[in-house]
Amino acid sequence: MRYSRLKRRKRNRYTWIVFLGLLLFLVVYIGSASAAGNFISRLITSFLNNFTSANSGKGDASIGVPDTQLTVPDKADTAPNESLDKGNIQKVTEQLDIVPFNLYTIQLGAFSSKENAEMAASELRAKGGAGYILNDKYFRLLAMGYASEGDAQKVKQQLQKEGIESQIYLISASGVKLEITAVADKVNSIKSAFSIWIDKVKALEDMVKKLDTSAISVEDAKKVLKATVEEFNSTLEQLKTYLVTQESNPILTGLQNLYQNCIESLNGILAENVADRVATSSKIKYTYIDMVYRYKQYIDNITSEQGGTGN
């Protein structure tokens, strides 16, 4: 009996020792695992912080998106190598008032047949007239155009004295107000493009008068035309740079077409090695009427797209 009790006490003592040993092992293991976990966590955090710090401010190198978004003006607003500092690039809005442009033409006939009109036009050109055919229900034969109605009336009366019946046919381009928003240089350039075209085309009338009165030689007239073409080419190149980013802009596109057509017409006159005063005068008269009529169509398109806001 006594032996048996002692044996049971020893077994109970060993059991407690084993239990305490296992408990101590678990405490040490959990503590070590926690420490290791904290160490690894700190290591990863430190690595991520160092990586972020080393790459901060670079953005996403794969797509090149900067941290700070900038509004960059279009190519037409920024000259090559010009600074893109936002403070240096400011757009303005200005109004361009285009005044009406009237051309009082001398009409020598209105034909229902195009063939008859072309035959009459050919005869008129040989005599120094424009021989311009305007298809407006009828094929109207135009001899010359004048910015002043008074000048047109005087010519009409003179023709009547010579037994030639004529009518005054008005080609009228209405005035229009345009609102331009761009950098200041671009606004000024577009305004200049309009005024240059109108002034130079109107100058063709004065050139014709001088040719017809022998106040200027054909050679001198062609020198003036050449200078006009050079100025037109310079302006046209500027307009083309604006259209790089505004291809669908009907105002700029139409203005470019006006310049292009006029350059081609004037180059056609310059290309002919003819010193004939009558022939040169006829071609300039034709170009004068043609350019004003094209201008009228251009302005009509603008006003129709704006809902008829012309003057």
Rank of each mutant, 00 (worst) to 15 (best):
T309Y: 11
Y293T: 07
S34T: 09
T181R: 03
K177R: 13
K209C: 01
L20N: 12
G150E: 15
F194P: 00
V187D: 00
K296I: 00
R140L: 09
L170Q: 10
N12H: 09
L204R: 04
A54Q: 10
E272V: 07
I17G: 08
T228W: 09
Q95H: 06
G131F: 05
N50T: 03
D136E: 13
K114R: 15
T245Q: 14
P250Y: 13
V92H: 08
K154F: 09
Q160S: 14
Q157W: 05
I44Y: 15
I216L: 13
R42F: 10
I89H: 01
L225M: 11
T71A: 12
R294C: 01
S189N: 10
L178R: 05
A35T: 06
E179W: 08
A227G: 07
G310I: 00
V218M: 04
S4K: 08
L108G: 10
L48I: 14
T93Q: 12
V72R: 11
F194R: 11
Y104V: 00
K186G: 00
T181D: 04
D212E: 11
R42Q: 13
D97W: 11
I196E: 06
T235R: 15
F51Q: 12
Y138Q: 11
Q306H: 04
Q306M: 11
V274M: 08
A279E: 09
D67S: 12
Y138T: 06
E118C: 03
T78L: 05
I302G: 04
T45S: 12
T280V: 07
K127N: 11
K86C: 01
C262G: 02
V224N: 14
A120H: 05
K240Y: 07
S234V: 01
D74H: 08
S248W: 05
S4E: 14
N311C: 02
Q160N: 10
Q158H: 04
Y259C: 01
N267V: 03
N12R: 15
A227Y: 07
I168V: 09
E264I: 06
N102W: 05
A152F: 03
L124P: 00
Q95T: 10
I302S: 05
Y295K: 06
Y288V: 01
Q107P: 03
Q158C: 02
S174A: 13
T45I: 12
S148N: 10
G64W: 01
D60F: 13
L24D: 04
P100L: 07
I30G: 06
F232C: 03
A147N: 11
S189P: 03
G31M: 09
K296F: 03
S166L: 04
A143E: 02
A182W: 00
Q297Y: 06
R125K: 15
V183N: 00
P73T: 00
G59V: 01
R125E: 04
A203C: 04
K296Y: 02
A193S: 13
Q167G: 03
K191I: 00
R125W: 02
Q260G: 06
K75E: 10
I30M: 14
S113D: 04
E165F: 12
G129L: 10
D212P: 02
N249V: 03
N12V: 03
T15Q: 13
A121F: 02
G57Y: 10
Q306T: 08
C262H: 14
G163W: 01
M144A: 15
K75N: 09
E264H: 14
K161Y: 10
N257K: 15
V72S: 07
I98N: 02
